[in-house]
């Protein structure tokens, strides 16, 4: 069981992820609708894993990733991204994201990624 923080501006995406995670025994301890809130929640909740969307208002996923890494260099961050954003995903990997999930995602993919880190 992992404690997960979901950061995505689309409530729909948060719900999809949450459904998948909770169905499989993980715990979603927090949600955030942009990078800024995401960082705040990270500080508050200290989750095992963070899923980060890239394109978000206020603060995007990459900036948030860097900030989270500043707070805890060992933070486990998974990038959730759509096709066509390969460049950003690469950047995220360099900044220390553990892995990534491609939207639209399947339950199987999400679990595999989550269980592998």
């Amino acid at each position: 069981m992992k404690k997960v923080l979901i950061v995505d501006d689309a409530a729909f995406m948060r719900l999809s992820l949450k459904n998948i995670l909770e169905k499989n025994g993980h715990q979603v301890i927090g949600e955030a609708e942009n990078g800024k809130v995401g960082i705040m929640r990270y500080r508050e909740l200290n989750p095992d894993v963070v899923t980060l969307d890239i394109t978000m208002p206020e603060m995007d996923g990459l900036t948030a990733l860097k900030e989270i890494k500043k707070i805890d260099n060992n933070a486990k961050v998974i990038i959730v991204s759509a096709m066509g954003q390969e460049g950003f995903v690469r950047e995220a990997i360099m900044y220390g994201a553990k892995s990534f999930i491609v939207k639209p995602f399947s339950e199987e993919h999400v679990l595999k990624v989550l269980n592998s880190i």
Binding site: D9, M13, P57, A82, K103, F105
Partner: peptide, 13 residues
């Protein structure tokens, strides 16, 4: 761009 990006993602799901 962002709005379209989000709609794309959600509707593909």
């Amino acid at each position: 761009f962002r709005i379209m990006h989000t709609i794309k993602g959600s509707s593909a799901m």
